[in-house]
Design a binder for these strands. Structure first.
Lengths: 192, 192
DNA sequence: GTCTATAATCAGATAGAC
DNA sequence: GTCTATCTGATTATAGAC
């Protein structure tokens, strides 16, 4: 829908407080009253916009295929898939971070719950690797997860900061996925 | 100054658009007109507030002592120091990220320039390690820097999201510094 | 330097015609 | 469903007394 697209684009750049109903209406080339007709009020519009964003990323993450093999192989595959999804949906991920930052009360809880589940899955995979002897015994899985989340998520956040958006070519995505997975997994494995 | 402290605290939670002059005046327990007297207008206030924040972090980063030893040892020391600074000034760092996100035009350029210099220093250290044979020859230093920046910076951003602020005890800081440095350096070193 | 108005603007939201 | 007109409240900012 044009209204949600316009709201998304403006919210990404300006946040909810910085974006007016009229800006959105102009960008979507509709009358501003149509927004009230569909969404009730400004909060309702952003709720719908964020829900769409969360579903989009949630679906992609849920569809990441569970690989076979050793914990090390599965982790490598998991991380590189995650980087691919993150770069492909960088804009959407920025929006979700922004929403968390702006402290959208009840919405935040939903995304946080999702993040915790996701983090727990990675943590379990790491613990498995520690028990199998693949990974270092001195690792704290929780800390390792925190590092990984940062490494991956910051790619989306940094895109307009450190990296020029244009510079993310398809081949770059693939190389970044491989690089990140390699770096992280090597950081975990037990010294031979 | 009380006004800048209040502005900082409110900006961190609500952003510039979400924070009113009166909220700041009330929090600082001064008359709202005093803010115009000192800073001219709202933009001037936030400019002064951000400048103070940038100087604070900039000074801490500039004072990080340059260690001696192999690239590997220096990098370890550099990363663990950086994590310490980041966790100690997490709140200030969040503010700078928030300012970049909100797109404060000329301010953004300043912080970006600083980040680029910082990134170049790390990149040079990694290149040195590659040449000396300490680090993997297949590494792209630019990508490695991106991963490191994410791993470190996200600690500050995630504090209110993934990690409960209270949970960052002093000993945690030290362990997180060691963990991050260890993880990153191990990810870089050449297989034996 | 600090206060009390108050002007000027802007944004969210509603009413009601078509 | 879509438009114009308008209300209401909040917010930035100024004027001017003390």
């Amino acid at each position: 829908m044009r209204i949600l697209d316009a709201a998304t684009s403006l919210f990404e750049r300006q946040g909810a407080h910085g974006t007016t109903i009229r800006q959105i209406a102009d960008a979507a080339r509709v009358n501003s009253q149509l927004i009230y007709y569909y969404f009730g009020d400004k909060a309702g519009l952003f709720r719908a916009m964020l829900q769409r964003a969360a579903e989009r990323v949630g679906a992609l993450l849920a569809n990441m295929q569970r690989a076979e093999g050793t914990p090390r192989e599965r982790l490598f595959s998991f991380v590189s898939d995650w980087v691919r999804v993150t770069l492909a949906e960088a804009s959407t991920i920025r929006i979700l971070h922004r929403a968390l930052l702006e402290g959208d009360e009840n919405f935040g809880a939903e995304v946080k719950a999702y993040s915790v589940t996701h983090a727990a899955a990675i943590s379990a995979l790491i613990e498995e690797g520690i028990e199998s002897g693949d990974f270092r015994a001195d690792l704290d899985p929780r800390r390792a997860v925190a590092s990984l989340v940062g490494m991956v998520q910051y790619l989306a956040l940094a895109e307009p900061i450190l990296i020029a958006p244009k510079s993310v070519r398809p081949s770059e995505t693939e190389e970044m996925a491989k690089h990140t997975a390699e770096l992280f997994v090597r950081g975990l494995i037990a010294a031979r």
